[in-house]
Design a protein around this nucleic acid. Structure first.
Lengths: 208, 208, 208, 208
DNA sequence: AATGAATGAGAATTCATTCAT
DNA sequence: TATGAATGAATTCTCATTCAT
């Protein structure tokens, strides 16, 4: 049997490794502790992944896949721009709260020391949302749904920036703290943020 | 060289260390490589800084100081909200382009594995802008300069998010690449972004 | 070699470490040299012992265990006081000659810079002999076997001092040299010392 | 002026160095801390002493000189053997209590890692007392003052052993603790020990 | 194939010693 | 001459990676 490890076990390794990587940082996370957390031997990790870096990349891909899948679902339902925005905002809040480790992996590539990989992922991940949002804005301009003088690419960028920061603000330590500094920790804070962000975007986009 | 380190050399250490930290990450950067880059011995670094962590903090403080000083200048001139925004945007572009390593230091703490330090810095750094922006919006609401229904804290947060992302987009590898993905690399891109962001903010803030 | 260390190898580590510690002193002995002497890697030592200090303590405990076991055998046979003394003296000569490194470990704690550990060991090691000898003298006084006016604790102390010095005189460099200075290096010196020490003790104890 | 340092300053260096060496051990004591304690620069120490080892040896010589001088005074007054013993015992208690650092230096050579130096000092220091005590016992035997069948060298050795242990018991950490274990810490303990040791010696020597 | 002990290169840190001022 | 900052070799300890079982 060439593959004794079940898919479940393989997923378990990635899940635990993601956890370790996101909690202690890619450098401080050790293969031994990952193996321990995933309840497998050190050797088995090296059987499936070339080295620690390859394991990190596998975790990264998986996390980004989950995030992307989630986001793509938000836009599926062909509603109005503001509805889609609301979906995306709520999804960001929910996903980052439920899967902070995955958001932290996303955040981790932004600090990658491997420039090549960083670039690769930047193109891979961001070009999807860039394309979708930009087209959406371009169409919206033509349809007269938003202000005429906006640059679709720039507005897509601003919008994605706000969404990305939202993800981090719910998933990553520093940004979480920062959100508290700005908006406190009221029970209704998250709902308030949805409303306010929609308000801000609506105005920004020039939607009547 | 047995002469006491000149201030210039001392600054050189911090500058090179900042460079090393921001390029390779705080973990991968080694004291040896920093010493080499600053053209001093390993020992001298330990004479001036308790340990690697203390050196990192010194670099961080310096970078944050430079950044803060720059930002504070932007708001000094008592102009309109949009003028200040324009100043802040242009300053972000300029500072991050000229001092990418310092922006990367800022970015680096967002990945800190030392939760205590992370929290400390989050409060230290963010509470200043949080307070200033929030008050600004609160006043602007009262003065009827912006939409009545905005939450000052939330809008301060959104605004700071956009500014932070702008800094990263001009200073940090991943975000730079991402900006290219969204907006290309045209010669007039940066100017376009200023204009567009102002447009976006103006609408978002509800400024007539 | 990737096979788990055999007990023999584990013992070898302690034996070599004891050797290194006792020859070069605990500070000068390096983990690298110990690993080399024991023919294992540096890492394996850290697998079995927390740090250099823990290794030292393990060696110490082992040495003290061997010494104590040896001494306890000397008193087992319920003979007269002088018989026991003779046993202890001969045992000191033999043990220290055969296991000088272990005696040097005993000697090494007397130079410990860690006051806490030093104290701990002083109590741990010395209280056993202190109790046994003191009780022995107290009983002997009551039974009229020794002089009436002796203080059991003081005499136990003197006796233990002489025994301790005997151990060092056969096991440790400086004391060995010193013994030569006092008594030369004749073939029959050791036997002479037994006889003379018994003579000295007998008189000192006031045994008729 | 070839020698700016006064003798007093030189003595101060040795005194402080002795203190540092005896408190932290020769390895852990640093030139920097010694210089600081003696209130001189690091450089000046290297002007007067080849290296750390040479400084240690100078301290050693000085301490041993002081100790020897003290001991020689005890025997000067041409009294009876027991009187001299009492003098030596009291002197040991006093000297070791007042100058523990010097006793600890004496103790330190017994752990010297430099075998050659250890040997040299063993011969240098011990041959004096060995000679004096041995001759004293030889004469006492001839004069019929002590038991006839004693071996002068052996008895000199036993006597010196007891005296040496007394020094350590009052000056060195481990032995101090050990003394407490054996004899407690009563106010009259020291006087009791004098009396008891004299009792022990008198009997041991076979003095009527 | 899975295990996990052993390896040893590499990083942080210390401190004896040097030597420009 | 005295100073004490700079140097860098040496040491402890960690952990990615290997490979015998």
């Amino acid at each position: 049997m060439l593959k004794k490890l079940t898919d479940e076990q393989l997923g378990q390794i990635l899940e635990r490794a993601t956890e370790e990587f996101s909690v202690n940082g890619p450098e401080r996370a050790t293969i031994k502790s990952i193996a321990g957390a995933a309840d497998v031997s050190v050797g088995v990790i090296y059987k499936y992944y070339e080295d620690k870096d390859a394991l990190f990349e596998a975790c990264l891909s998986r996390s980004l896949g989950m995030l992307t899948e989630c986001l793509s679902r938000a836009g599926e339902e062909g509603k109005s721009l503001m509805d889609i925005c609301e979906n995306l905002i709520r999804m960001a809040q929910r996903f980052a709260t439920e899967h902070p480790a995955h958001i932290r992996m996303y955040h981790a590539i932004t600090m990658d020391t491997d420039a090549g990989r960083m670039e690769k992922y930047a193109r891979e991940i961001e070009s999807v949302s860039a394309k979708i949002y930009t087209e959406y804005f371009a169409n919206a301009v033509e349809a007269g749904l938003v202000r005429k003088d906006l640059n679709p690419a720039a507005f897509a960028f601003f919008f994605d920036n706000l969404l990305m920061m939202l993800h981090f603000s719910y998933g990553c330590g520093y940004y979480r703290e920062r959100l508290s500094v700005f908006c406190g920790e009221d029970a209704d804070r998250d709902e308030m943020l949805v409303k306010q962000l929609l308000l801000f975007l609506k105005g920004g986009f020039g939607i009547a």
